[in-house]
Amino acid sequence: MHELVVISGKGGTGKTTLLAAFASLARKKVLCDADVDASDLHLIMNPRIHQRHDFKGGHTALINQDKCTGCGICRDVCRFDAINENFKVNPLSCEGCGVCHYFCPEEAVDLPQKTCGEWYISDTRFGPLAHARLGVAEENSGRLVTLIRKQGKELAERMGLDLMLTDGPPGIGCPVIASLGGATAVLIVAEPSLSGLHDMERVAQLAHGFNVPTMTCVNKFDLNPDQARAIESMAERKNVAVMGRIPFDPIFTKSMIMGRTLFEYDSQSNGALSVKSIWEKVFKSLKNHCEKNKKLPD
């Protein structure tokens, strides 16, 4: 079982469009949308949901006003300013640490677990999809990322599929960290701008810390060929393999509007052809990494 995680550091570089395109090229695979905070893959995949589960996240303090005597201890011990002068908890500030629950002399503070999202197992025209939706303003997205990747892997094993394509989250924080552990390889989709260079460097450093083999490709390279070259040479210095370039092509937007992958929309376009050549290289490199690591678990 091997897993390719596609991430970007910076948002909006074309990560999901690329992953959807890979999905129409790869055979025998499971798809996993681990960008649980703003998942978009389903807009192209049009999934038929088979299983729907609640995601139980963190806890939030709840003060029982009948028991509360207004002594104020909870407000004193709370580090997150989550309890107001009327002893109401602001769920957006509450960290769920339970310190108020522990110290309340009246046992007036409950700490119920929240349902903070849903996850799904679905069918798509490109194979099974594990995906999730984190509720707005919720935390624990890292844990939901871990959960959905695990569900995807189990699904792959049950169905005898040996590849998982994972659409990862942007950034470098908790959800990205959760998407890297145990991955076979990572592909960073970069864009040729100063921001793209800066973000790519940070996310590559993170992937390096996880010891995951890392690859990159530059999307819309012709918007600034100098920056594209700068990204590629930085990648080489950081031991990140450069897989190719994709020209700026309006079919990225046009195909998205139709809910189609690049190849379904126009397989002969410049954009699609360059994505195809990148996929072939990425797939080859995945197979190589996998053979090298055969002895390891997972």
Partner: peptide, 13 residues
């Protein structure tokens, strides 16, 4: 049974 001197799995988040 032989003992390990290091972990053999990834950290979970």
């Amino acid at each position: 049974i032989s003992f390990s001197d290091r972990p053999n799995a990834e950290a979970h988040w």
